[in-house]
């Protein structure tokens, strides 16, 4: 009898685990399938030591190769393009570019979103510990940097969505500030 209970427990344990892996894979697959699009966004930077809360609005485009372009409309017009390892900021003063490879922490948070959109789960699991939860069609993926150096700056990145759509990304910084980005479909 005890032997049967133990066997049952093992079956439930292993079947539960394999069921979970299958789910997260499905979520990644759905996101990757639906990654090429343009969305509206509202980004809220929480209060920092030197700024009040800042709300940024605009549009963001994701392309199949992982490139991202942000067209910021408020508080002032500017553009941010992330192509390969280069982040370029374009405003009325011209173009300024930085290489993400020279800024590993910035690169890490940008890459997290990029890898999710590209469905590259292995790259994410190599750099973050992954937790996720499911509620009907809704899902939340919580990423925590594995590297200590990154953890000193970024505590976690939370990505919430439904089916293959990302609705909200919350970046929690070690200094207590956060950046919340809500994505909406383009208004027709």
């Amino acid at each position: 009898m005890r032997r049967t209970s133990l066997s049952m427990l093992l079956v439930i344990f292993f079947s539960g685990n394999s069921y979970s892996v299958l789910d997260i894979d499905n979520v990644f697959k759905m996101i990757a399938k639906n990654s090429v699009k343009t969305l509206e966004f509202v980004e809220t930077h929480s209060e920092t030591l030197f700024t009040e809360e800042v709300t940024v609005t605009g549009r963001v485009s994701f392309s199949a190769n992982g490139s991202m372009s942000k067209y910021i409309e408020t508080p002032s017009r500017s553009e941010v393009h992330i192509v390969g390892d280069t982040l370029s900021l374009i405003d009325n003063k011209g173009v300024r570019s930085v290489s993400l490879d020279n800024y590993p922490i910035l690169s890490s948070s940008i890459n997290a979103v990029k890898w999710i959109l590209l469905g590259e789960k292995n790259k994410i699991s190599n750099n973050y510990s992954i937790n996720y939860s499911l509620k009907g069609d809704y899902w939340t993926i919580n990423l925590k940097p594995i590297k200590k150096q990154e953890l000193l700056q970024v505590l976690s990145i939370s990505i919430q969505g439904k089916d293959g759509n990302i609705d909200l990304i919350t970046l929690l910084k070690a200094n207590g500030s956060s950046v919340k980005t809500i994505f909406n479909s383009l208004k027709k």
Partner: peptide, 24 residues
């Protein structure tokens, strides 16, 4: 004002935190 606006663009445009600290 132009400089501070540019600073804000860098801040909202995901500029590296080291650079934002420098701009202060």
């Amino acid at each position: 004002h132009v400089s501070f606006n540019q600073f804000l663009n860098s801040f909202t445009g995901n500029a590296p935190s080291e650079f934002i600290d420098y701009l202060l």
